[in-house]
Simulated assay, not measured.
Amino acid sequence: MSERTLAIIKPDAVKKHVIGDIIHRYEQAGLRPVAMRMMVMAKQTAEGFYAVHKSRPFFDSLCTFMSSGPVVVLILSGDNAIKKNRDLMGATDPAKADKGTIRAAHGANIEFNAVHGSDSPETAKQEIAYFFPEMDVVR
């Protein structure tokens, strides 16, 4: 089943110059970028995006990190895109991520873990709408 998911290449991965490797991994797995932009997320934008975590102790440090430098925000399209991307990313903690996953290869720790990906169809729809007007998405 073809679907879309949001992916973010986080500031730590952008700083390491691994954008190309990460996008290559998406494409090798059959995920096609249909929208992409590089941006520096304002802290307020990060707070809105991660509002679901507002009561969690890591909320402020997460938002500070996500606004600390450029990110690459993408919409990936493909069969079972959400699950495929979650599998490619690996566990949130890179130390627990399977070898060969993006986080195992490029993440430093649970906070600096290289990438974000939507966790469900509902979340993907909300996250995509947060960053991309429909007219900016390739059909």
Rank of each mutant, 00 (worst) to 15 (best):
K96H: 02
H24N: 13
T5H: 09
L62E: 07
G20N: 13
P11L: 06
K16I: 08
A35E: 08
Y26R: 08
M39G: 01
F132M: 06
A105R: 08
H53N: 09
N113Y: 07
D93R: 09
S118L: 13
H116W: 06
S68A: 10
I128Q: 13
M135P: 08
L88P: 06
N109T: 05
L74W: 02
A35G: 08
Y50G: 02
L62N: 00
A129C: 00
G100Q: 03
C63R: 04
N80H: 09
A35S: 14
F49Y: 00
D21P: 04
M1S: 01
S120G: 04
P33V: 10
E122P: 08
K83D: 10
S68E: 11
Q28M: 14
E127F: 05
K83P: 00
G90M: 05
A29Y: 09
A114N: 08
D21Q: 07
G107N: 07
A104M: 01
V14N: 12
Y26E: 15
K43R: 15
A13Q: 02
F59Q: 04
M89P: 03
A35M: 09
A81H: 01
P133D: 11
K99Q: 05
K54Q: 15
D93A: 10
V71E: 13
R103P: 09
M135F: 13
A105N: 14
V71Y: 05
P70G: 01
D79S: 06
S77G: 03
A81E: 02
K54R: 14
A51R: 03
R86G: 03
H106M: 04
A29C: 12
V72T: 14
P94K: 06
A105V: 04
G48E: 14
K83G: 06
S55H: 12
Y50M: 03
V52Y: 13
T101E: 00
K96N: 06
A13F: 04
K83T: 04
G30T: 08
G107H: 06
G30Q: 14
S55N: 10
K15Y: 09
R4K: 11
K43N: 13
Y130G: 15
S61L: 04
A29W: 07
S77I: 02
S120N: 03
E3Q: 08
P94H: 08
A97E: 00
D98R: 02
I110D: 12
G78S: 07
